[in-house]
Amino acid sequence: MYIWEQPDWQKLTWKDATIAARLAEVRHDQGRLIGRMEALGFRLREEAVLQTLTQDVVKTSEIEGEQLDATQVRSSLARRLGIDIGALPPTDRNVEGIVEVMLDATRNYASPLTTERLFGWHAALFPTGRSGMTRIIVGNWRDDSTGPMQVVSGPYGREQVHYSAPPSTRVAAEMGAFLAWFNAPTSTDPVIKAALAHLWFVTIHPFEDGNGRIARAIADLALARSEKSPQRFYSMSAQIRAERAAYYDQLERTQKGGTDVTAWILWFLECLGRAIHGAEGVLAAVIAKAQFWERAGSLALNERQIKVLNRLLDGFEGKMTSSKWAAIAKCSQDTANRDIAALIDAGLFRKGEGGGRSTHYEVAL
């Protein structure tokens, strides 16, 4: 029996005594992080928000198996937030869509969550009306015309069904109850509400595709309400991506259990706590970047050098070689070598360990 088959499934319960200590720790860590970020000053705080949101958008898509270009995501976010990061590369429609969803969820956290708002989010995620090569219903609830909504894994012919959602005939009524609960005033702690909202929405699974991304956007909206701030300094999606197997295991156990969801809330709180602590890395990177540019400010760097250095400082994946430099800067190999040599002479760049074909370069922080 799935949780939604329980006669009173919308009356989810939990044991306060079991989660109280962890909730108190998370709330304390939330406040401490916000305090530290606010002490950074406007420009550094702006950079921290941009890095966090970029990570959030990239990782929430990765969880669903979609790889987005982080540079495009950062560019789209910077343009919409009015942050100057230099020349902005063009972005794909699928990047623009998920960026729109995440920004609407966090910047407009105080606005009610409505059917039309959810339909707008769904349409933004699938601007072509297709999920991959498959045409899907966009901006409306699923109708199960191609069969029941199930979460499956495994090769064709040997699929394993992890979860079956409520039939489409129940979706409108289920979502009506969910939205009424989500928008109503409550004495429940907003962080607990974020955990419950994520579980409740993904259990209904109201859309043909995109349910996970929208569930995480709803959780981010609820977390923004818990902080009464649109600024995001940690990424729950990035932490869920890092713990994806545990996330799906806990979700499956909860959806196949009773209406006591204490174990789910506890897992959510622990994951959230790790996400908040993970923000220390963002904070360190933002400060290191600012200190680097203070040191480099007196040097006459060209546009190519500034562009590639920013790519590296913003979390470039892999090792920077002269050929990668040439590709990013759109210059010849000889020009790339001269740019790199000048930075090494200035003490801003250094050779990484290894040589020959393994020769690569690192920013000297």
Rank of each mutant, 00 (worst) to 15 (best):
M149V: 06
P148K: 03
S187G: 14
F182E: 11
A173D: 14
G176S: 13
P185V: 05
L196H: 02
P167G: 12
G176Y: 03
D144K: 04
H198C: 12
M175D: 03
G154C: 07
Q150I: 13
E174S: 15
P167T: 08
P167I: 09
V171K: 00
Q160C: 12
P155H: 02
D189S: 11
W200G: 04
P166R: 03
T203N: 09
A172V: 14
A184Y: 07
M175Y: 01
P185R: 06
T188I: 15
V161R: 10
T186Y: 02
S168C: 14
Y156S: 14
R158W: 08
A177I: 10
I192S: 01
S145W: 08
T203S: 14
I192W: 00
H162F: 04
P185T: 05
K193E: 13
T188K: 10
T186V: 06
A194N: 04
V202D: 01
W181Y: 09
F182V: 14
T203H: 04
T188S: 13
G157E: 05
P185C: 07
R170A: 15
E159P: 08
A165L: 02
I192T: 02
P166K: 05
A173G: 12
S153I: 10
M149E: 03
H198N: 15
S168L: 11
W181K: 13
F201T: 01
A184K: 09
G154S: 06
P185N: 05
A165W: 00
A197D: 00
T169S: 15
L179W: 00
A184I: 12
S187I: 14
G147F: 05
A173F: 09
A165K: 00
G154R: 02
I192C: 05
V152S: 12
R142H: 04
H198I: 07
R170G: 14
R170K: 13
D144N: 09
V202L: 05
H162M: 10
Q150W: 06
T169K: 11
V161H: 07
E159Q: 15
F201D: 01
H198M: 12
A195V: 00
I204S: 03
G147K: 06
F201M: 06
A172I: 12
S145D: 11
M175C: 10
W200A: 09
S145I: 12
H162S: 07
A172M: 12
P155A: 07
A184R: 13
S168F: 07
T146D: 15
V151K: 05
A177V: 11
Y163N: 02
N183G: 08
A184E: 15
P167M: 10
Y163I: 03
N183V: 05
I204Y: 00
R142W: 01
Q160I: 14
M149W: 01
F178D: 00
N183H: 04
A177G: 12
T188M: 11
H162C: 10
V171A: 01
A177F: 07
P155V: 04
R142D: 03
P190C: 08
T188E: 13
V171Q: 01
Y156W: 13
Q150V: 15
Y163G: 04
A194W: 00
D143W: 03
A177L: 14
H162R: 06
V161A: 10
Y156N: 12
V151L: 13
P185A: 10
G147Q: 08
M149L: 11
V191G: 02
S168N: 11
M149N: 04
A165E: 00
S164Y: 07
P155I: 03
S187H: 14
T146I: 12
L199M: 09
G176P: 09
R142G: 05
P167D: 09
